[in-house]
Amino acid sequence: MNEKRLVYPWTRKDVTSLKSGESVLITGTLYMARDAAHARMTDEFMTKGKFPFEPEGQAIYYSGPAPAPPGKIIGPAGPTTSGRMDKFTPLLLENGLYFMIGKGNRSSEVIDSIVKNGCAYMAATGGAAALLSRSIISQEIVSYPELGPEALRKLYVEDFPAIVIIDCNGNNLYEDGKRQYRKIHITAREDNAVKNPNKNTTG
């Protein structure tokens, strides 16, 4: 499979040229944050008017690593479910964040914001945490050390593998890929729901 390379510092054009379905190898700086760090960052922005890091031109990787065993830079660090960060994401994109890496569906608000701001959403392979951590060359805690695995970290990654899920045109691999390989038409019920929008047809 042909992989595209994305090297820091990435430009807006690098990000808007990413296409849904593309495999990408990322080299450069990523911020690592999940639920608790997102809640705190948003609070900080609301009260102090700035984030603990400048999001302009940066990227966030949704993950909460396992503890680093002796001699290792970081423990296994795979993606966590992105949907839990949906409510915090548009604010970050409005403030210049370029892309996010996680796993799983995004809300329509996030997708709209990705399109509006020329951003992208990528996925790393969920569960391949041991493998992914090999691409993490360095890490430091930027904020909230008391949150342990949920602290805000700054990473340097080399050839970190990801797949573009949602591109700046709103193409969504989770939908397109599924459609391509779908063999049944469960749409019988979906059609029904469309025709009779008021009738709840699910069991």
Partner: peptide, 30 residues
């Protein structure tokens, strides 16, 4: 049938082998 899914399944195999031989958790969510 999907080449991309095959690539991902390959990563899962590599990940499982790597975790087992290096004594690290296969996934960060233990």
């Amino acid at each position: 049938e999907s080449p991309l899914a095959k690539q991902i399944l390959g990563q899962l195999i590599e990940n499982a082998n790597y975790a087992a031989s290096n004594n690290v958790p296969s996934c960060q969510d233990t």
